[in-house]
């Protein structure tokens, strides 16, 4: 039973990966295009027009974008998958959550390739690569759990109201600027600091930077807390999804 479950997951993920890059001329290059183009633009703007006092700003920015991109890609792809896989849902009885898992797995692969590209660039241009970099696995796991949980909520909402796709797009754009990705935490006035940490992504990106760029380990309490929050979001998300997914075939 478990093997057929993983086989479904693998086949859907594989098919999606192929579909994404099949007819494109550049193919796999597009995996890197989004974060790196974003980086190129933002880096140009924020190293000429406005500067932040951040050590290793280029790597600070690139790492932030790659992690953000994982979150934004996984969640929007989960919504997209509910639409593109609606025929499967209506015609075959299989565990519905596989659709969300495959979207997130797909983004995880993209994320891993992006991190690999980051390492290659760091080696070429002498970016900071400390032992702490290996501990990136911690924030990566946090964001994977968190993004999957959010994706479950979004998928259920999408089946009820299609405009979630648009709302989420706007939401992501807003939160890109409300999360310290382009700018450092220090820019935010003291009184708003606690408020901004309500967004788990802030802590996740911060942890990643502390580890990879500055070789410091953030307080264990923070890491545990974000793990806790992510797991709660995930558990609530899948519980809601499993309750609602029975009706997907008639609602889609």
């Amino acid at each position: 039973m478990a093997s057929s479950y993983f086989n479904m997951l693998r086949e859907i993920t594989l098919a999606d990966f192929k579909l994404r890059y099949y007819d494109s001329v550049l193919g796999i290059v597009w995996v890197f295009a989004k974060p790196f183009l974003m980086f190129a633009v933002l880096f140009t703007v924020f190293s000429f027009l406005k500067r932040f006092e951040v050590a290793n700003y280029a790597w600070f920015l690139l790492l932030g974008i790659i992690i953000w991109n994982f979150f934004s890609d996984a969640t929007s792809k989960s919504i997209l998958n509910m639409r593109s896989k609606s025929e499967f849902i209506k015609k075959i009885a299989f565990p519905r959550e596989i659709i969300v898992y495959s979207a997130c797995l797909n983004s995880l692969i993209t994320f891993a390739l992006n991190i690999l590209a980051y390492v290659v660039l760091a080696l070429l241009f002498g970016g900071p690569l400390n032992i702490g970099f290996l501990l990136l696995i911690i924030p990566a796991t946090q964001i994977l759990i968190f993004a999957t949980g959010i994706s479950f909520f979004l998928s259920v909402l999408f089946v009820k109201a299609r405009d979630i796709a648009h709302i989420w797009e706007v939401f992501l754009r807003a939160f890109f600027w409300l999360t310290p990705i382009v700018y450092p935490l220090a820019v935010i006035p003291e009184k708003y600091r606690t408020l901004i940490f309500l967004n788990p992504l802030v802590s996740i990106i911060n942890t990643a930077r502390e580890l990879a760029l500055y070789n410091t380990i953030p307080p264990l309490f923070d890491i545990t807390l974000v793990f806790g929050v992510s797991i709660v979001v995930f558990v609530l998300g899948i519980a809601l999804f499993n309750r609602q997914s029975k009706y997907f075939a008639e609602e889609l």
Binding site: S4, E11, I12, I92
Partner: peptide
């Protein structure tokens, strides 16, 4: 957008076959 071969693998996987 997928070939016949790919569709066979995908469809059978969804039907629960290894």
């Amino acid at each position: 957008e997928l070939t016949a071969r790919e569709n066979v693998f995908l469809y059978s996987a969804l039907l629960g076959f290894s």
